[in-house]
Amino acid sequence: MGTTTGEGETGPSLVDELRAVVDRYLGRLRVDLAGPPARPDPDVIALLADPFSSVDDVHDRLSAAESHLRGRGDRRAVFLTVYVAMTARVRAGIEGETFDDPAWVRRYLVAFAEHYRKALVAFERDERVAPAWRVAFGASLGGETLVIQDALLGINAHIVNDLALALDDVGVGTGEERDRRHADHLAVNRVLKSLADVVQTTLAEVYDAAGLEEADELLGRLDERATLVGLRTARAFAWENAVTLADWPRLSSFVRWRVRTVSTGAAYALLAPGLDQQVMAELADIEHGEPVLAALSDAVHRDDTRPPA
């Protein structure tokens, strides 16, 4: 059984977490990751060196960073494509009065983006960065991942590692205020989950068009791997950890170890989907022969003004 945190949201079970711990440490023995660039990209640093000041600032600068990385063929753009679309939709929700506490959601969105900004800049500068982000960035730069892996690695690092810390930054409140903020939190995260589904659907269409029957098996196995922590349960995991940080500050070190270890274990699991290497190579060939990044960007940005459901 997992930990239930409202609206049927269930966090990872103890067994899931133990599996993530094992993958966290065994993963070091079997995954070869690219290191940071020899020199920081001056355009990335110029765009993201300064803290974000508003939701509009988050959207505009992340959009510019996504365009820059995608133009260079840098696969770190894959997660940014999804993230920019999420930001646009949440912004539309704020403007459309979707949320009970729009001022808190604005702070939430900026604080959440700050964790990503700091991680990317730190990686560029070869500074200390959370292990899940080092895996995500290093794998994407290594050139051996599939687009779906690039997307899921970024989503995993940002939700499982960063989200509880961002929620702690803005405060989860107490009593009825906490209940209202939890409802807004779930609405924000449903956007990211829906966009992850768009990524998977878009890639499935690309693979199917190429006649690769094993694509469904790959996507299914990656989805299964993602549930290790899981991406389906990470909303509850993040909220649970944020509440622990708020109510039991003496457990801060444990919570930070927990999110760091589980997110890193999940990252290594996503890099080992258990599919035949020949099939993986065929999928990679299809991606290299198709404008996949452009198709993905078009798909996730198709309705950026739609607020969260």
Rank of each mutant, 00 (worst) to 15 (best):
E7A: 09
E9W: 06
S13R: 10
S13D: 09
V15H: 07
L18D: 02
V21T: 11
V31S: 14
A34S: 09
G35A: 11
P37V: 12
P40H: 14
P42C: 12
P51L: 09
D56M: 09
D57G: 11
D60R: 14
A65M: 10
H68G: 14
A77Y: 02
V78E: 06
T87F: 07
A88M: 10
I94Y: 02
E95S: 14
A103T: 13
A103W: 09
V110W: 00
A111I: 02
A111W: 00
E114L: 15
A119S: 06
L120D: 01
F123H: 13
E124Y: 08
R125C: 14
E127H: 12
R128P: 07
A130T: 06
A130W: 02
A132D: 03
R134I: 15
A139C: 12
E144R: 15
I148K: 01
L153D: 00
V172L: 01
G175N: 03
R178F: 07
D179R: 13
R180D: 05
A183R: 06
A183L: 08
A187Y: 00
N189E: 04
V191H: 05
V191P: 01
L192N: 02
Q200T: 15
D208E: 12
A209Y: 00
A210V: 08
G211Q: 07
E213C: 11
E214A: 15
L219I: 14
E224S: 13
R225I: 09
R225G: 03
A226T: 07
L231G: 02
R232W: 04
R235K: 11
A236W: 02
A238D: 00
L245W: 02
D247S: 06
W248S: 00
W248A: 01
V255W: 03
W257L: 14
R258P: 04
R260E: 09
A266S: 10
A269K: 01
L270A: 04
A272M: 06
D276I: 11
Q277L: 11
M280S: 07
A281F: 07
E282D: 13
A284R: 12
E290I: 11
V292S: 08
A294E: 12
L296T: 05
L296S: 08
V300R: 03
D303M: 11
D304F: 09
